[in-house]
Write a protein that binds this DNA or RNA. Structure first.
Length: 191
DNA sequence: AAACTAGTCAACCGCAAAGGA
DNA sequence: GTCCTTTGCGGTTGACTAGTT
């Protein structure tokens, strides 16, 4: 006779992390969340934990499931490749993927530019995160001037000290802005 | 009503990295 | 430096449900 469920520590930790934690938001994803997931996925790929970091109260597992069960299909229906986030018929210059299309060169060049911009945005995000972490630590220790100089050295557009971190904390919007400047926004997806 | 199918989501698995002894 | 444990992650599976035939 088995009393209770046979759970190992790993299972318990996972269940807490993905299901039992009190700060988890459950229920439908908002349009805003859909857009954020799609854009971050375009930038970061299947890095669900990184994507989840930008969606408060959502778990990486939930986002991953949501992507596979809904968003991926929605993108496919709109004619976009859910992996590359590009229109399916143009990625190789022709619908059948043939590489002898005269447009292939410029398309590949466009892909290279896009990938380069993506990597730059990601690198900037990593760098900003680290700076913010350092500055926030100093700020918590009441070393406002040291915190300010870290951030001022990085970005001169700061407001009053009490708004310093709220204004300059790295956010998904930073990445999204970079991405939107390349792709012209999210309207292409029609979501 | 029963069988089948497709969608959803919690949970499992294997791997890698981090940290401590 | 090595071994062991813990933690985090992404891919995958399987149970459950609703819809369809």
């Amino acid at each position: 006779m088995i009393i209770g469920l046979q759970r190992c520590g790993k299972s318990c930790r996972l269940r807490w992390k993905n299901y039992l934690r009190p700060d988890i938001k459950r229920g439908n994803f908002s349009l805003q969340e859909d857009q954020t997931i799609i854009q971050l996925h375009a930038l970061l790929g299947n890095r669900w934990s990184a994507i989840a970091a930008h969606l408060p109260k959502r778990t990486d597992n939930e986002i991953k499931n949501y992507w596979h069960s809904r968003l991926k299909k929605r993108l496919a229906l709109k004619g976009y490749d859910p992996v590359t986030h590009r229109p399916k018929t143009t990625i190789f210059g022709s619908p059948n993927g043939s590489t002898d299309d005269p447009k292939t060169g410029s398309n590949l060049n466009h892909i290279a530019q896009w990938e380069s911009a993506r990597l730059q945005a990601e690198a900037r995000y990593v760098r900003d995160s680290e700076l913010y972490k350092q500055a926030h630590h100093l700020y918590n220790n009441n070393d406002i001037s040291a915190a300010s100089s870290i951030l001022l050295g990085h970005n001169k557009d700061f407001g009053p000290t009490d708004q310093l971190f709220r204004q300059n904390a790295p956010q998904c919007l930073d990445i999204l802005r970079a991405w939107e400047s390349i792709r012209g926004g999210l309207q292409q997806y029609g979501v």
